[in-house]
Amino acid sequence: MTLRPLQDRVLIRPVEQEAKSPGGIIIPDSAKEKPVEGEVLAVGPGIRGDDGALHRPELTAGDRVLYGKWSGNEIKLDGEDLVIMRETDILGIVDQAHAEQQAT
Rank of each mutant, 00 (worst) to 15 (best):
T60N: 06
I47M: 00
I84Y: 05
T88I: 07
P14Y: 02
E87W: 05
G46V: 15
G62A: 08
G23W: 08
G62M: 11
L59K: 03
R64F: 09
R86L: 04
G68K: 11
E74D: 13
L82Y: 06
K76F: 02
G46I: 04
V65L: 13
R48T: 13
P45L: 09
L66G: 04
I84S: 04
I27E: 10
V43L: 12
P14K: 06
A31M: 12
I75T: 07
K34Q: 14
V83N: 00
A31G: 01
D81S: 04
S30N: 01
E58K: 11
L82K: 00
V15I: 14
V43G: 08
P57E: 02
P35S: 08
A61D: 05
V83F: 09
A31D: 07
I26Q: 10
G68V: 06
I26W: 10
S21F: 10
W70V: 14
L41Y: 10
Q17I: 13
L66K: 04
K76I: 09
A61N: 09
K34F: 09
R64M: 02
E18V: 05
P57H: 12
Y67D: 05
K20A: 12
K34W: 02
V15Y: 03
P22T: 05
R86K: 15
S30H: 15
K20E: 11
K76P: 00
M85P: 01
K76T: 14
N73M: 10
N73Q: 09
I47E: 00
I47V: 13
R48P: 05
E16M: 11
E39C: 11
A53N: 06
V43H: 05
W70R: 10
G24T: 02
I84D: 01
P28K: 03
E16P: 02
P22A: 00
A42V: 04
K32I: 12
V40G: 03
S21N: 07
D78N: 10
I47R: 11
P14S: 02
G79Q: 02
D63H: 14
E74T: 12
G46C: 01
K20H: 07
P14A: 05
K34E: 13
I75E: 09
E80S: 01
D51L: 08
I27Y: 07
L54I: 10
L77I: 12
H55W: 04
H55T: 11
D50H: 01
A31Y: 13
E39S: 15
G24W: 04
R64Y: 04
K34N: 09
I26E: 15
K69R: 15
I47C: 01
V65T: 06
D63K: 01
G24V: 04
E74W: 00
V15L: 13
D78M: 12
H55R: 11
A31H: 13
R86H: 04
G52Q: 11
H55Q: 14
P14V: 06
A31W: 11
P35M: 03
G38Q: 10
W70Q: 14
Y67C: 00
